[in-house]
């Protein structure tokens, strides 16, 4: 059991039905696959970041892992246990070990409950009222660096950063193994973002947490994640160690994302790779390599033949012509 990764996902698929009966009758496609064959493992104490544009399936993937969205295929194993099609009653004990933080710091807190009630709720849900709840609430507030009298406030009286801290406190209330954080820094000032990330890092080290972080903010990834995975149209195009990917991205899409990331250094020369066109519709996935419609390096083979996942260094990626793979590839970038 101990060698088993905390979370291991393979070939996960999540489908959404769109349109109604009428479009089904008209013979149009009525399903889209928002997450399409994704696999990764998360070791204990590790942090994996999912990055990608809006609509790339990051949030859907997280919700599927958390059991909020049924998976249509594949497998999700948590501590060696298959979560897909797990009966509802078996889910409940797992909820203690896995907690999720949602995007909107204030919106993810129940508006009519005080901070005290919000923080006490996990204990109440899991029947842990034997402990002194007031003491637990104080402990949690101290843990996330909020003053004690915040317990009597209501969500609308909190700033985004304070609400996010309450969200973090609630997420770690029951000493979970895994935290899934959907855009933990969304909607916060940059300085507050830093504080929240430091808090998460600190808690991870102190409590031995594993984290699955969803973000489109690459600074967040670099500050917090051991590994990162880049999603495009519901698939991983590249997955590997964060530092290695930042140093030398192999997939053109990853390279484009990284080049679009603003650096706080005015002297830095930007070699921005601009991607043409729009993200294709999930209803009409491109043939061959799905990125070929926007890839500046696309060749004929990319249009017809889908690349298979391959390993390169510490990364896994799906691309016919990976960048930074050797001297010739480096020259190819310089030439473009």
């Amino acid at each position: 059991m101990t060698t088993e990764p905390l979370l291991s996902v393979s070939d996960l698929r999540v489908r959404f039905r769109i349109g109604g009966m009428m479009s089904a009758l008209a013979g149009r496609r009525t399903e889209i696959e928002a997450v399409s064959g994704v696999g990764f493992t998360l070791e204990r104490g590790q942090t994996l970041a999912l990055v990608g544009e809006s609509g790339s399936g990051k949030t859907t993937l997280a919700r599927a892992v958390d059991g909020l969205q049924p998976a249509a295929g594949g497998s999700i194993r948590f501590e060696g246990r298959e979560l897909r099609d797990l009966p509802k009653k078996d889910w409940k004990p797992l909820r203690r070990k896995m907690s999720m933080m949602f995007q909107d710091p204030v919106g993810s807190l129940s508006p009519r409950l005080s901070v005290r009630s919000l923080l006490a709720e996990p204990f109440a849900i899991h029947g842990l009222s034997g402990r002194s709840l007031d003491a637990e609430v104080e402990r949690l507030l101290a843990l996330v660096g909020l003053p004690r009298d915040f317990a009597d406030r209501y969500p609308h009286q909190l700033s985004g950063g304070q609400a996010r801290r309450v969200g973090v406190a609630r997420a770690v209330a029951l000493d979970p193994e895994l935290i899934i954080a959907d855009e933990p820094t969304a909607g916060l000032d940059v300085s507050i973002q830093g504080e929240v990330l430091n808090l998460l890092n600190d808690l991870r080290d102190r409590m031995g947490l594993s984290m699955l972080i969803i973000t489109h903010n690459l600074h967040v990834v670099r500050q917090i994640a051991d590994r990162m995975a880049v999603m495009y149209l519901g698939r991983f195009v590249e997955e590997g160690e964060t530092e290695a990917i930042f140093r030398a991205p192999h997939h053109p899409y990853t390279a484009a994302l990284l080049s679009a990331n603003p650096e706080p250094d005015p002297d830095k020369v930007h070699n921005r790779i601009a991607l043409p066109a729009e993200v294709p519709s999930l209803l009409d996935r491109p043939s061959g390599c799905e990125f070929h419609t926007r890839c500046p390096f696309a060749q004929d083979i990319c249009r017809t033949q889908a690349p298979t996942p391959s390993a390169l260094g510490s990364s896994r990626l799906t691309c016919h012509f990976p960048l930074n793979a050797g001297p010739s590839a480096v020259e190819a970038i310089a030439a473009s």
Binding site: R63, D66, L68, W91, K92, R95, R96, S99, M100, F102, Q103, D104, G107, S108, L109, S110, P111, E121, P122, I125, H126, R170
Partner: peptide
């Protein structure tokens, strides 16, 4: 489908 309801579901609330 509001986030605070999703959060409650995620915590295991009945």
């Amino acid at each position: 489908s509001a986030e605070h309801v999703m959060a409650a579901r995620s915590m295991g609330a009945s």
